[in-house]
Design a binder for these strands. Sequence first.
DNA 1: GTATTATACCTCGTTCGAAAAGGTATGCAA
DNA 2: TTGCATACCTTTTCGAACGAGGTATAATAC
Lengths: 107, 107
Amino acid sequence: MLKSETRRATGVNELVVLRCLHAGERYGYEIAQAIHERTSGEIEMREGQLYPLLHDLAARGYLASRRTKVEGRPRVYYRLTAKGRTQLEQLHDEWQRVVAAMDRILA
Amino acid sequence: MLKSETRRATGVNELVVLRCLHAGERYGYEIAQAIHERTSGEIEMREGQLYPLLHDLAARGYLASRRTKVEGRPRVYYRLTAKGRTQLEQLHDEWQRVVAAMDRILA
DNA sequence: GTATTATACCTCGTTCGAAAAGGTATGCAA
DNA sequence: TTGCATACCTTTTCGAACGAGGTATAATAC
């Protein structure tokens, strides 16, 4: 389908998660809800997908994490690293190229 | 990522192929080239993906096929069925909803 | 008091699509 | 005669997505 470098972006997941962290740190559960609400359920990010992705993004150096406890329950806050911001920009560009390419096909 | 019904559309493949047949019948090799040229290589449709997809779309009743020979080489022309046109419209709508949802996230 | 819902993290097994590579065959050009 | 373009196809491997499950706390409802 799309160029292999573009694939992760097309899976949409990585771009969406990084973008959700653009404004500041957030925790997983919060991210899942934000995506659901902002897209009226059009884009689903299930926990089975979200948590492994967050771990992967952290392992790749795009996210940094911080563990705390809030009202007895554990929380893991994530924030973008400098590397993560660069990645966000790249995936954003790639997504726009894909949309533009699709426009040329669908026009 | 996206709703399961939307997934195939997001894989982009099915929508792209159906749309390529909107203007009239075409054969596989021709479709692959058209996609490559119209998207400046941004969207790749390899043969290992395209031919099975064409067979699948035909099996699902979205495409009808016609076998001929041109200059000694075999060719299989595909064209949209009425059902295929409906599917094209649906996938097109779904794609637009996805793009709109992404816009809300990326804005 | 107890059951349910919401919060919040996580993993595992299956399934399904994508990617790469290979396979067949003809015709034409270098 | 070697290689490239045309044109069809399959198979094998790999990874991502999905569903389902698992743990635990706190608040709310009954």
